[in-house]
């Protein structure tokens, strides 16, 4: 189980302190809702190690990862855009995410996300939906048990968005991931989340 326990953060030159408490089970997608600037993306930045919390603990199956460097944390993160290095090929993007590059594994994962034969294409030649699929393929390749999604499907058309949400749900269940999805769209929550939290008064509340 992923547990965020009384984690707090205050931005420099700010008086506002954000406080987070959260639990996520394996094979579960939970959603974090909130208005712009409410602090929902800050939670992901703290979990990923981009921001250092003032206090609190973050644990996976009882193992504390609060003070680990970003790359050693048991998680992958997907942003709304810029998830790929656009000047590199799809396969190069995938291999960069692996500690020991394995071409055949990368190709089989591409097939899994519906992009068989796309390996040699340049990332900037792909559509927005295809780029997010490649980014999801890299998540699978990196084999990390926690998946953080920072509004990753904004800007996609509604059909592609539905497909991507379904893919995330499938990946979460098949690979026993703990998925935390930040969104401002209630339809995303209804589509795949088993539970939802909302940022209110700088803290998370169960919805």
């Amino acid at each position: 189980m992923l547990k965020i326990d009384n984690v707090t953060y205050t931005y420099p030159q700010s008086t506002v302190t954000y406080r987070y408490d959260l639990e996520v089970n394996p094979k579960e997608v939970i959603a974090v809702l909130g208005a712009s600037g409410s602090g929902k993306s800050t939670l992901l930045d703290i979990m990923a190690g981009f921001l250092i919390p003032k206090e609190g603990k973050m644990m996976l199956d009882g193992v504390d990862f609060t003070s680990l460097p970003t790359a050693k944390r048991p998680l992958s993160i997907l942003f709304q855009k810029h998830n790929l290095f656009e000047h590199l090929s799809v396969i190069k993007n995938l291999l960069l995410g692996m500690s020991s590059p394995d071409l055949s594994k990368a190709e089989s994962i591409l097939k899994e996300v519906g992009l068989e034969g796309y390996g040699n294409k340049m990332a900037n030649a792909l559509s927005g939906g295809q780029q997010q699929r490649v980014a999801l393929a890299r998540v699978l390749l990196r084999d990390k048990p926690v998946l953080l999604l920072d509004e990753p499907f904004n800007g996609l058309d509604s059909d592609t968005r539905k497909e991507m949400l379904a893919l995330v749900k499938t990946m979460t269940v098949q690979n026993s991931l703990h998925t935390v999805m930040v969104t401002h769209d209630m339809s995303d929550v209804e589509a795949i989340a088993s539970r939802a939290y909302k940022m209110r008064d700088n803290r998370l509340e169960v919805l």
């Binding site: 990923a48 190690g49 981009f50 460097p69 970003t70 790359a71 998680l75 942003f79 855009k81 810029h82």
Partner: peptide, 14 residues
Amino acid sequence: IPLEQYKLSKSLGF
């Protein structure tokens, strides 16, 4: 350079 690219490189351990 978009901040996401820096975050991505950090999360990939560059």
